[in-house]
Design a protein around this nucleic acid. Sequence first.
DNA 1: CTGAAAGCGCTAACAA
DNA 2: TTGTTAGCGCTTTCAG
Lengths: 334, 334
Amino acid sequence: MPATIRDVAKYANVGVGTVSRVLNNNPSVSDETRLKVLAAIKDLDYHPNPIARQLSTGRTLTIGVILPYLTMPSYVERLRGVQRALAGTEYDLILFSVESPAQRDAFFEDISRSPRADGILIISLPPEDQQARRLANSQVPVVLVDAYHPELCSVLIDDIQGGRMITEYLIQLGHQKIAFLGDYLETPFHPSMRYRFQGYQEALQEAGITYSPEYLAEGTNERSTARRLAKQLLSLENPPTAIFAGCDTQAIGVLDAAREMGIRVPEALSVIGYDGIRDAEYLNLTTVEQHLFDSGVEGVQLLLEALDQTIPEPRKKYIPIELVVRGTTAPPLA
Amino acid sequence: MPATIRDVAKYANVGVGTVSRVLNNNPSVSDETRLKVLAAIKDLDYHPNPIARQLSTGRTLTIGVILPYLTMPSYVERLRGVQRALAGTEYDLILFSVESPAQRDAFFEDISRSPRADGILIISLPPEDQQARRLANSQVPVVLVDAYHPELCSVLIDDIQGGRMITEYLIQLGHQKIAFLGDYLETPFHPSMRYRFQGYQEALQEAGITYSPEYLAEGTNERSTARRLAKQLLSLENPPTAIFAGCDTQAIGVLDAAREMGIRVPEALSVIGYDGIRDAEYLNLTTVEQHLFDSGVEGVQLLLEALDQTIPEPRKKYIPIELVVRGTTAPPLA
DNA sequence: CTGAAAGCGCTAACAA
DNA sequence: TTGTTAGCGCTTTCAG
């Protein structure tokens, strides 16, 4: 049975209030009694019960992080940023991993009301309007990372600009036949893929290149799916000379396809990814670096500010992106 | 101000005890009052306060996970297993990320006594004797994953056997000049590298091959360091025909070195890693698969059992390893 | 089957 | 500067 504050008080011949004051570094304790109490704490190997403290103060000293199941490297990288930013603070991190839309909804429902955490960080899970309203009206501040809703604070990446950036770069290299291979655009789950595609279309249009629907390949976010889709693209009568993959994992699938079909990269085919995961570096893949780590750090920053202030007006913060040119892109064969 | 159990009781014209019983599915409540209470709960949008419940019951419904900062993919993979195994249970996961030995010690100290969590999972952080004793004597059950101490439950991998397995395989392919490139062996932090090296030495000895110290390269666990060390090994007067890298990341550095030096893999050099991270698959790297995910799952399993039983006798569970032969190993050139 | 009341371990307001 | 006491919101006896 661990010692309680009462045990310490009795042992030191003081009241529990005094012990509490010592615990919380309240200056109005004489040095003498302070020492007495500290000695008692040591003798009894006393450690305050955080749960009791939480109930009493109303603060949990905990930040809840809700994110999709850790399969994608990009989630991990963001989480790492969160972790790091939290390390210097007094807050612990409690992790809620979402494995299905139903579970996501359940978390959103629950968390907004029960004071399990003093603040909530939601990563890569855009809430629906009604959920966002609940979250906004709840007692705990909420910050979205890699997701957006007008009523909430968010840290995000301009995916439209990213899509443009990639496409413009390819056009500038001389490519005209540029395919887009990404997730299903229609999924309501996360719109970033749609935005990247939008940027792609805008850049094409501005360059006077007609968008060709046969250059759009949609599929699940898996290497093998991407490989299959890339093979289809490359088997077209008039195949693309460059493929813009919606994420690095898909770009890797494209590289697989090219290798298997004997198509040389970057000579005969330019491939470009999106994300900047570690694998991209290993594979010398040209990509758009998203600074995922920083997005986690910034998310925490925003949350901590919201915890301080009483006015959590919805703020937006953009993380800049950056084109990283590596070895999988080159001018077309002419 | 969120509604409390008292509000609900008042609203439904019952005692708080009854509301509590409804909340906890206590059968001794008449259907009539139950419905009345449920209606009140709904009307007031009441959600029980988990903190108060925790203080009252003494259970936090939380599992604490202590692990090194999430830089290495292997930690993430193990965490993912933990996550998954916990998903079906009533437990949440609170994450303590260790960024320094001092912080590790602090966590070990603190956590063993304060009931922040009902159980603790420690990943890849072997405790010292004194710490282990404290942990073993504390109220909360503790399970080590990828770490061992006689006084505690643990889930581990037989690294000696892994080192042997790799070395025997290379010998069987016909290699005689086998180098070992790994972390500094003398670090007291985590001994797995030492064990792998030990397996390597044992296998050499059993095959009658004399161990040559110049075939040992030690360095930090980074791709670039490994590349540098590999270059040194390959520049020896009598260079190895095979390199056993202590982990996949280091193996990737070795591949870098070979590429830069124009040494063909696997024809002129066999390279083998350890871990089975995703990158290994991308790069077609022969490696020892550790089933990292499973180690997390098993750790949770052990912990949940310990939470049920009152007798937490220290148990050990080995996760089998598996040699995955891919494209970076072949017989030597003869 | 149900209400009242006593804690869980701590903080903080109030007296002294 | 200190001790006492009233909660924090819930669970769980104990009567009834």
